[in-house]
């Protein structure tokens, strides 16, 4: 088993929580893991990316090679497109939120972005904010995206649930349940629309 995942978003959108959850689940399944994060300057409202690699064999590079990623998981539509050069053309999936984060003056029209995403052979686009609201809080949008990615990660759904329980343990039972619901809603959506 080997999955190379690019995570994209804007600083503060919670991509590192997605990475930590998948990482924790991977460890629960006894897999090897390398996860490269972005710190420092790019946290300030700029674009951020993380490389997450999980495998049943030891992993060499911290960075994923362009053209070799199995998935791009993004919390923002323009950020998802920024990494399509990383995707494996024959097998790669792109999973992204449709909710734009427009903190720049020349942010493109959302229709133009979606048009580009929908040209790809394999994608899931989801209104993560609306779905997160259904789960109880707009702040769980990143976990909705994780849920929508779950069918493609190659890790058991139960392991992801367990990882969420672990990661949100300190935040109380309510928040754990909210995130588990967000995960499920995202997962169901992806299963229906894949």
């Amino acid at each position: 088993m080997k999955k190379d995942i690019i995570l994209g978003g804007v600083g503060g959108q919670g991509i590192l929580t997605i990475a930590a959850t998948i990482g924790t689940a991977a460890l629960l399944e006894g897999l090897y893991l390398k996860q490269s994060e972005v710190h420092g300057m790019s946290q300030r409202g700029g674009d951020v990316q993380a490389h997450l690699r999980i495998s049943s064999k030891p992993i060499a590079s911290d960075l994923i090679a362009a053209g070799k990623a199995d998935m791009v998981i993004a919390v923002e539509p323009m950020e998802s497109l920024r990494y399509v050069n990383m995707l494996n053309k024959d097998t790669g999936w792109l999973i992204t939120s449709m909710n734009p984060f427009a903190n720049i003056p020349d942010y493109p029209a959302i229709e133009d972005l979606l048009k580009e995403i929908w040209k790809l052979p394999r994608y899931i686009t989801i209104d993560a904010e609306k779905t997160a609201k259904e789960a109880g809080s707009i702040r769980a949008a990143n976990i909705v995206i994780l849920g929508a990615s779950a069918p493609f990660i190659g890790i058991k759904y139960q392991s992801l649930e367990q990882a969420i329980r672990k990661i949100f343990a300190k935040k109380g039972e309510d928040l754990i349940n909210l995130n588990l619901k967000a995960l499920k809603l995202g997962f169901d959506y992806a299963q229906k629309h894949r």
Partner: peptide, 29 residues
């Protein structure tokens, strides 16, 4: 990165999809 090293070794690299021109830079603010 792995691809730069691949090229130096003469290994063919196939990158993914072309990044569409609609993308704008998002500098830190």
């Amino acid at each position: 990165n792995p691809n730069l090293v691949a090229k130096a070794l003469g290994i063919e690299v196939e990158e993914g999809f072309e990044i569409p021109s609609v993308i704008k830079g998002r500098p830190p603010v």
